[in-house]
C-alpha cells in the first residue's frame, strides 16, 4: 500500500524581481519525493520566473529552471497538476534548499505568497 502526503511550503515574495531563498525539511515519515507543483496568484507572474531546488543536497532543478515547467493552467485537474519526478529522490527528513526568482513583470500584486506543494510517498 502506498501512502501519500502533500506538503506545503510557503514563500513570500516581497517585491517585483525579488530573489527569495527558502529552506525546509521533508516530512520524515515519507521516503520519496514523487512530484512537485507550484501555485502563483497570477499567471502573468509565472512568465520568466525561475525556481532552483535542492533536496538532501542533491540538485533537482538548477537556478534557471523555468517555473512554468512546474506550474500549469487553472483548468488542469487537481490530480494532474503535479510534475512527476521520473527518478528516485530521497525524502525522509531531507533538507530543502531553494531559490524563487520573480520575473518582475508587473508592479502590482506585491507582496504575494508562492505555494510549493511537494508530493511525498511511502511504500509500506
Amino acid at each position: 500500500m502506498r501512502q501519500h502526503k502533500y506538503q506545503l511550503i510557503r514563500v513570500n515574495v516581497p517585491e517585483p524581481g525579488a530573489s527569495v531563498r527558502f529552506t525546509g525539511e521533508t516530512d520524515r515519515s515519507f521516503e520519496r519525493l514523487a512530484g512537485i507543483f507550484v501555485a502563483i496568484p497570477e499567471p502573468i507572474k509565472e512568465i520568466g520566473a525561475a525556481l532552483g531546488l535542492k533536496v538532501g543536497g542533491q540538485e533537482v532543478f538548477d537556478d534557471d529552471h523555468d517555473l512554468r515547467l512546474i506550474t500549469c493552467g487553472r483548468e488542469v485537474a487537481p490530480n494532474e497538476k503535479f510534475f512527476a519526478f521520473p527518478e528516485h529522490i530521497e525524502a525522509g527528513g531531507a533538507a530543502i534548499e531553494g531559490r524563487l526568482v520573480d520575473a518582475g513583470n508587473t508592479a502590482e500584486g506585491y507582496p504575494y505568497e508562492a505555494r510549493i506543494i511537494l508530493h511525498l510517498t511511502q511504500d509500506s
Partner: peptide, 12 residues
Amino acid sequence: SAQTRQVSTTRI
C-alpha cells in the same frame, strides 16, 4: 500568453 495559460487544460 498569460491569458491563454490561465484557461489552459494541459501542463507543459
